[in-house]
Nucleic acid binder design. Structure first.
Lengths: 127, 127
DNA sequence: CTAATTGCAAACAGTTTGCAGGCGT
DNA sequence: ACGCCTGCAAACTGTTTGCAATTAG
């Protein structure tokens, strides 16, 4: 039989995603989880995250020019906002894609990704 | 005085972008340019590309989960199509962003990126 | 001639993997 | 006690940088 184990490192990693409700990078997760497991290795974070992706608990969030972040799976279709000041990523409800794309013949669209970049509410009042 | 030189490696690199009218990765550029300069080093390609970006001749094209590609600068606003079969990237004319975004208060959008993913015309008839 | 440019290899950052010891079960 | 899991270090990929040799002007 398999025999998946419950370890404090995995719990700490899962908790990071529960506590912070926005896409997190492996480094962010590691920093957060180290508050509970100080000697936590980054490799363990990667292994745990990849497992959780396989199990369908997490979803990778790839943004242009950014390292992969991860967020809880099962959220309904949405897009992302990337703050160029604090580098945080936020979920934005709803779909921003135009209805009528009018593409050249032969392009078969399976998926679309939209990223808005700018300043988030927290950073905005610095300007 | 400065003293920018014309070398066959730079010409070969520039020609790659002139001959192939779609965003190219440094590796693609290197492979293409090596047809003319077989001993061309990848570091030279990176250096030339970065210079051309500084000079405003090229523009970086970052797509989710992909290495940076580059395309000639000065094209008017457009978006990109990424073929998941052949991994090529194509420019698509026009803007696909909805007019009325209706974001939560405080999010200040400076820029947006849209990537469509699917099969390109060449790959499409394999299905 | 002489300094910008190249090619190679070493240095880096992010991610993955191998392995010996640690720890759930 | 068994063997999954962790931490560390080594391996890897994409990109940048240092340096001696090459070469454009």
């Amino acid at each position: 039989m398999t025999a998946k184990r419950n370890t404090k490192q995995k719990s700490a990693i899962e908790e990071a995603f529960t506590n912070i409700q926005r896409p997190l990078s492996p480094t962010e997760v590691c920093d957060l989880a180290r508050k509970q497991v100080p000697r936590l290795g980054i490799a363990t974070v990667y292994r745990a995250i990849n497992e959780m992706v396989e199990e369908g608990l997490l979803r990778p969030v790839d943004l242009p020019g950014q390292n992969t972040r991860y967020e809880k799976a099962g959220l309904h279709h949405h897009h992302h906002f990337h703050c160029s000041s604090c580098d945080k990523v936020f979920d934005l409800e709803g779909c921003f894609l135009k209805k009528d794309l009018n593409l050249p013949k032969g392009f078969d669209v399976i998926q679309h990704d939209i990223t808005l970049t700018g300043h988030c509410p927290d950073c905005n009042h610095d300007f």
